[in-house]
Design a protein around this nucleic acid. Sequence first.
DNA 1: CTGAAAGCGCTTACAG
DNA 2: CTGAAAGCGCTTACAG
Lengths: 328, 328
Amino acid sequence: MVGIREVAEVAGVSMSTVSQVVSGNRPVSAATRARVEAAITHLGYRAHPGASQLRGGRTGTIALIVPTLENPFYPLVAAGMQDVLVPRDILLTVTDASGMDRSTNAIHRLLSRRVDAMVAAPFGIPAAGLAELHDAGIPFVTLGEEPPGGGDYVHSDDVRGAREVTEHLIARGRRRIAFLGGEESVIPTQQRLAGYRAALQAAGLPFRDDDVVCTEFTRQGGRDGAALLLDRDDRPDAIVAANDLIAIGVLDVTRARGLRVPEDVALTGYDDIDAASLVSPPLTTIENPAREIGRACARLLLERLDGDVTEVTRAVALSNRLVVRDST
Amino acid sequence: MVGIREVAEVAGVSMSTVSQVVSGNRPVSAATRARVEAAITHLGYRAHPGASQLRGGRTGTIALIVPTLENPFYPLVAAGMQDVLVPRDILLTVTDASGMDRSTNAIHRLLSRRVDAMVAAPFGIPAAGLAELHDAGIPFVTLGEEPPGGGDYVHSDDVRGAREVTEHLIARGRRRIAFLGGEESVIPTQQRLAGYRAALQAAGLPFRDDDVVCTEFTRQGGRDGAALLLDRDDRPDAIVAANDLIAIGVLDVTRARGLRVPEDVALTGYDDIDAASLVSPPLTTIENPAREIGRACARLLLERLDGDVTEVTRAVALSNRLVVRDST
DNA sequence: CTGAAAGCGCTTACAG
DNA sequence: CTGAAAGCGCTTACAG
């Protein structure tokens, strides 16, 4: 294995100088730099990351924790992060927290690996996990909401998005609009529910507890929730689903029951994943810019790592927009 | 920061002993072990990965290179790898090679980071990249086909799958069946084309060059290819698409042209991603067990890293199966 | 602008 | 079964 020592010998300089050329941490004369660089290419030298890490302190790795890789929204967040991290030669590690007993385990594990920074989708991460992250003192960004205790976060104004989609249903003449959420404790459910509620209120429509059902952010969750809502005598005339997967599950049920969408029940999703435009009827939904979200997260983290930041909390709000299709 | 030294002090043993307890690399008496473990939990000790790496040689990181994260097939492969790697406390880093000038860059970058092993979807990775991988001497697995020069690979018998789906179309009475492939140079295109061809031959149907069109493994690729195939005077009565995304692109075109599927043109996909059952009509396709593929890759790699393997090449073939829906 | 030397936190022969 | 010591390949004060 060729190391800094061999490069130094070939270039006729000290190991320190080679290190400086590689890291750029201190000025080197042009002539020396050229000799060192020639030696590096000649020998095919590659720095040993373990050694750099041991002295320098950084692993050059950033982690992303997501609730699941089965929702195509999250791989796109990862792709967005890569857009920013690859040019900086930082490695991204993606952890699907669904496989672990608790997502706290995932945080633990990544902290042991000394990742430099972390993006956590807090959906289902218990407060204890986030607290541990905080204590570790590494930069982190959460999705959706300011983490307890402060910190950077990226969101796309779910309250406004859900409000918009609900107002759209009201404008289409719907009056008995139900809300079908994901896990109840989770931020996107809460914010989208708040938006739904705000729209009803603004329109002077009553908010009814039993028109709100919370299940899971999956297709199966949508099926379960739709069964509860649609088999009642006083069926709603519209359903605001908290994400597209849930809405797709609702379609499974309407199809099985012979209900027409939107004639019998209008339906909206959230996220605008590819599948939203593929189902029949295609879903009216809110476009949630996954890739942009990933990029913004990575940028916030890099700024912290570069040390340019003094604020405790920074928020990045990305715009989302209503996409009207045939389900409403 | 608490290190092995502090643990040793508290436990009243040498640093060597602490190391042995942590790594399990040599026997330690039960009593000593207990004291050390108590000290570790008490102090909240975590090994520094950089230091272990510098001495031990391994980074505990495995890489996956995929052509894109936008095809939901690949995140599932990643999830399958995680199923196996997380219990072994190995980090997975996922690289979307589409963002890079060439995927060779991705290999380069990961080799510099000293990942312990690698899974490469060779689709679009030039031979030079694979050769470099080979030279690096780390375990690697490719998807779909034995890498040049030998090595482990995981596949799900694309030839047989494509043959099966084509035979299904023939059994349904189709006689003029076209093939719509992804990138021409790429293994899945080639193998699925071979299967298609074998089915035609077995049925005594002619193989015609102009019934084969290669584009890209994307929805847009499907649109482009379908335009070529369907605007001809002697339109085919069926299309075998090389993956589901392509087939979905074909549906965009049939819809625009007012062609009925399957009455005017029957259509099949490949992979059985979620979207395949969501489109209208739902696609007949071949189920490609992404998550299982990921698991198999990780297992092959771990066996190599554990040193139990002497064979140059090992193949894991996973079963795929025909899923018949309304598009045929 | 450059070099010699110490040391980051571990693991692993070596010795007992 | 356990310990003392060397050293992995770098980076960073320190000195010039």
